[in-house]
Design a protein around this nucleic acid. Structure first.
Lengths: 152, 152
DNA sequence: CCTAAGTAGTTGGTGTACTAACTATTTGTA
DNA sequence: TACAAATAGTTAGTACACCAACTACTTAGG
């Protein structure tokens, strides 16, 4: 808009905000998480906590470093998050009998029961976004490419 | 993997972690920002601060709420961020003479000069990711769709 | 067996992010 | 022109997210 060549900002300015993929990624991530928020709030979960529960519903039990690898998160991020999940009553952190350094994160009965409520979330999100499934699958495929490219 | 029907996790389990678009979005955003980090660190910028600078290089001066709208961020997030940018010497926060409530965020000489260094960043990122430009443009297009869908 | 190197998780520091409550100012309207 | 409603930005509280330093435990080499 303030460009000397009106209407060509995106083409001539490599630093144009609206053109940056990193900007679109950051906003998309935050705004989609914002769509989850009102659906997760009744379950007493934040979005990162929801992702931890997804991992546990699939692969319980998991050690902290296994969760860190699955979610690509720092153990220093997970450690307090898991304490909050334990305080919420959804998981327990048990000493691994084979290795006194390790913690086995396991689901409580409440944590397992929560999965039934969580089953309503994905369809609610898809409906709320109102995008065709192909579109979402295609986006997922391209995001996976970028993740692979960025984490080499 | 722990499924009773091996190899069909993604199809039969609507809560499969690897299948969630929100998960791919969160990881992609964090890992791409991770690619920027070593490039931004020499400039003394975090990624959110970099986005603020992009906005200012394009549209200076900007009020806090205009920045909030452009970056889709809460004023409560921007307020301390802008103080840190001011402490770094890249911006000044000036009282708007027409409205004593408002702040005009303006660039300092150092902030304007920083743009020359920043010009090296986008091509460095594209090269580092090693993805074809079409791919990035197409991803950007689909992210924009999702943002529009999520922020209605 | 004993010690150096590696591994598992925690802690503290800095910097986002979102919400809600708050102050200060401006605007709309009776 | 009073004054309620709206607006601009700050602050405090909670929760990530990354990093570096730390403790405790395990393993590998000698």
């Amino acid at each position: 808009m303030s460009s000397s060549t009106p209407g060509l900002d995106g083409i001539e300015n490599p630093l144009a905000l609206e053109q940056q993929v990193c900007f679109a990624l950051a906003i998309a991530s935050r705004s989609v998480i914002g769509v989850y928020r009102p659906l997760l709030e009744p379950l007493g979960l934040t979005h990162p906590q929801y992702l931890v529960m997804l991992a546990l519903w699939e692969h319980e039990p998991l050690r902290v470093n296994e969760l860190a690898r699955l979610l690509q998160l720092d153990p220093g991020t997970l450690s307090p998050l898991l304490k909050r999940l334990e305080a919420s009553g959804y998981v327990r952190r048990e000493k691994d009998p084979h290795d006194d350094r390790a913690l086995a994160v396991v689901l409580t009965d409440a944590g397992r029961a929560l999965r039934d409520d969580a089953l309503k979330i994905p369809p609610a999100i898809v409906e709320r976004l109102g995008l065709p499934l192909d579109e979402l699958l295609e986006l997922h495929r391209r995001l996976t490419q970028v993740i692979a490219a960025a984490t080499v």
